[in-house]
Structures are given as C-alpha cells and as structure tokens.
Deep mutational scan, measured.
Amino acid sequence: MAAGGDHGSPDSYRSPLASRYASPEMCFVFSDRYKFRTWRQLWLWLAEAEQTLGLPITDEQIQEMKSNLENIDFKMAAEEEKRLRHDVMAHVHTFGHCCPKAAGIIHLGATSCYVGDNTDLIILRNALDLLLPKLARVISRLADFAKERASLPTLGFTHFQPAQLTTVGKRCCLWIQDLCMDLQNLKRVRDDLRFRGVKGTTGTQASFLQLFEGDDHKVEQLDKMVTEKAGFKRAFIITGQTYTRKVDIEVLSVLASLGASVHKICTDIRLLANLKEMEEPFEKQQIGSSAMPYKRNPMRSERCCSLARHLMTLVMDPLQTASVQWFERTLDDSANRRICLAEAFLTADTILNTLQNISEGLVVYPKVIERRIRQELPFMATENIIMAMVKAGGSRQDCHEKIRVLSQQAASVVKQEGGDNDLIERIQVDAYFSPIHSQLDHLLDPSSFTGRASQQVQRFLEEEVYPLLKPYESVMKVKAELCL
C-alpha cells in the first residue's frame, strides 16, 4: 500500500493539533497551500530580480507567473513527485505547466533550498508574528487579574506546605514575570531571523556568478533584492546548502521555554482548584465526569500541561538535527523538520489560546482563602504575639514557653481530632496574655502579614508589564474561544 493518505478522510490519521486544537490561522501558515504558494512567490521574486539585473526574462513571463501564483494543481504535483521522487522539481514542473512561456526560467540558477529553506524562514517569521500578540493578550488578562487582587491576602506555599502570606495578585505576578520573559525572547528570536537568500547549491553562489558572467556586484544585488522582497532586513552571508540548523534550535528553545512557563502556571491553577481557592472557567453544560456528576475538573489547565510537556520535548529534535548536518548538509534534517517545526508552533498556539481562555474567566473564592488563612495564621502570628507581650512588660522566655504549650495543644486538636485551630481562643482565655487581649485582632490582621506584596504588584505592572504590552494595544480586544 502506498504511503500517505487522504487526510480529510475519517479513515486516515490526522494530527489532533490540526484537527482538534490549533487555530485556523496557525494551521494555514503550515498548510501545503501556504507552503507551495510561497515557493511560487519566491520563484517570481527571483525572476523579477534577475530581470532587473539584466537576464533575458520578459515582462510577459513575469506576468504569467504572477497570474498563476494561486493556480496550484495539487493532484498534478503529487503525481509528479511520485514520478520524480523530488518535491521541488515536482512543483517546478507543475508551475511550468500553467506558465508555459515562463517554464524555462522558473528556478533559474537556484537549488531546492532556495524555495525550501527560504519558505521555512518566512513561515517561522509569520508563525512567530501570530504567537506574539496571543502571548501579549494572556499577559494582559493576567495583569488585569493581578491588579484587581493585588491586596487580597492568601496563604503562600513553599514545598506545598503553608508559608508566609502573600497576595493573590502577587502570586499571579510570578506567572506574568515568566511570560514577559517569554514574550521578550519570542520577539528577540523573531527579529534575529535572517533570510537564507540566493546562495546556490553549497552556499557559494557559483551558479549565479556564472549567470551574471562573473559580476560579483550583481550577485550581491540579486541576494539583497530577493531578501528585501521577502520582507527581511538581512540575509546570511555564510550558508551551506541550507541555512544553519542552529536557527531551528533557537526558535524551538524559546517555544519550549514558553511551554515550561505555561505548565507551571496551569499546575498552580490545578492545585488551587483542589484547594477550592480558584477555578478555571466551567461552562453551564460542561460535564466533569461521566460517573461523578459533582466533579469540576480543571480540564483546560490539564490540557495545557499535557501539550506543554510535548512542546518542551520537541527542542531535542533540532538539537540532534543540527549535530548531524555533515559538511554542507545531509538530508537527516528533512523529514524531522517537516514534523517538529509545525508541531512546535501548533502546540504553542494551542496552549496560548487555551491559557487566554482560562485567564479571561478565572474565578476566585475569597471566603475559602480566608478560612485557610484562619487555619494557619495563628501559628504564624506567634512571633508577633511574643513581641507584643514583651512590649507590655512580659518575659520573652516565659511567653515563648506559654505559646509553645498552647500551640501544641491547638495542633493536637487540628491533627488528632480534625478540629479547627483554636490557638487564639486559648490565648484569649489565658490570664497571662490579658495585657494584649485587646491587640489580638490587630495582630491577626492578614494584611499585616503580606509585606509589600501589593506595592510590588503595582510597581511591576507599571514599570515592566504595561510598557512591554504597549506595541500590542491594537490587538488586545480579541477574545479566545474554545470549541473543545
């Protein structure tokens, strides 16, 4: 049975990233139509530049190519590739079939990587351009969430054990800070992308030097003109047959890092959902379990974690691919890159769409948070109580021993009897502590235990987050809708 299948058929496997999760716009960027249309555009740009620099290419040939950029006979191309065992030459023939007058000058002087690699770089750039505003929107939604809850005390956790208090907004800023680093890295790697350009079979530009009869300047002009037509500021000066596969490492490393950030955020949300302090959106008709109707599973956060793990592992592909590119190139890269580049971007696209949807509907339960604080705060307040007693004339050592005994009794009630923490009640009825009984409410005010959390939130948002989001103001209103 021949390899390949009808990918629109229910009898043929289709990647869930495309069929179930990723956005239509990201799927289109990695589609065959987008790819092969870009090949034709690159052939047109090459012909236009070659004509401008004096090669015998007519206006009629150029116009014929322009008129057929979208006229792609995919069936013919597939048949040609089956016959020739070469995808680029299959599309040269297919393009030439609908451009008979231009057929002889299509791909003039070029090698397969002229269309293959340059198209990949265009796709990487455009895919990054799709991700950047999506990530900015996630940051914006979380920034709104953090600002609104900047002063809401909550129990902090280290080692997932109760620690000092923080605020809900401050905790959210930990998430935002990681995503801001990801946004900066995505922008950097996007701006650092260079075009492969017009380089020939081993990167020496020998074929173009021959076409222009040894004119170095025209060869350099050709490279520059096509690079500018493709919208790049610069091209690699040095290439082998391909652009260095280190570029793929750079791009997928940034995406993998984004995956790590999203995994951490969504894990926190899942843990908070278990504590009943916070939940992701839950639709009115949504079913959490087929057997347990009360369940409210954090399905979206779980999906993000599941896909983020996949995204983090994909960076190993370009690392290994770059390491086995012998001399000017081997074909070890080809099949692998067809999979890992598309999957990385479709996965990143999915987790950003999902995280935006989550961040637009996060639900906080202040009463649950308050109750958990009441359970733990008495123990945390013991040092403040000791200091207040010393100020009232008591002995630190005597007070410490009193607190120690009462704390152990209260802990026994919590752990052995399943009761509430009654340390404060014990202190309130103990005559030894009568000098500070009137101060206990103040000493137990949760806001006095959150330090500068709310001020940190305000400063972080104003100095770091809002300036970073400013270039994306025009796209901030787009909502994230999930079908599944």
Rank of each mutant, 00 (worst) to 15 (best):
S9E: 12
S12D: 06
L17E: 00
A18P: 15
A22C: 15
A22E: 08
E25T: 14
E25P: 07
M26R: 02
S31A: 08
D32E: 15
D32C: 12
R33P: 10
T38V: 14
L44R: 06
L46Y: 03
E48H: 06
E50K: 05
Q51N: 07
T52V: 13
L55H: 09
P56D: 14
Q63M: 13
Q63C: 11
S67R: 14
L84A: 10
H91C: 10
V92D: 03
F95R: 01
G96L: 09
C99G: 06
K101G: 13
G104K: 15
I105T: 11
S112P: 01
C113S: 13
V115M: 07
L121S: 09
L124V: 15
L128V: 12
L131I: 10
L135R: 02
I139C: 08
F157R: 05
T158P: 00
H159Y: 01
Q161H: 03
L165T: 00
K170Q: 05
C173W: 01
Q177S: 15
Q177N: 15
D178R: 02
A206I: 05
L211M: 14
G214E: 12
D215H: 11
D216V: 09
V226D: 00
T242I: 09
T242Q: 06
T242M: 05
T244L: 01
K246P: 03
V247N: 09
E250T: 12
A256P: 03
M278C: 12
E280L: 00
P281S: 14
F282V: 07
S290C: 04
R296C: 09
R303W: 00
A308V: 05
T313N: 08
T313K: 05
L314R: 10
P318A: 09
A322K: 05
V324Y: 08
E328H: 01
E328K: 02
D332K: 01
D333K: 03
N336I: 14
E343C: 05
T347H: 08
D349I: 05
I358N: 12
G361A: 15
V364F: 05
V368M: 03
P378L: 05
M380H: 03
E383L: 03
I385S: 04
G394C: 11
S395H: 09
K402Y: 08
I403K: 03
I403N: 07
S407H: 03
A411F: 04
S412I: 14
V413N: 13
K415E: 06
E425S: 12
R426S: 10
Q428L: 14
A431W: 09
Y432K: 06
Q439D: 15
L444T: 07
D445V: 11
P446S: 07
S447Q: 13
T450W: 04
V457M: 04
L468S: 15
K470V: 11
K477F: 12
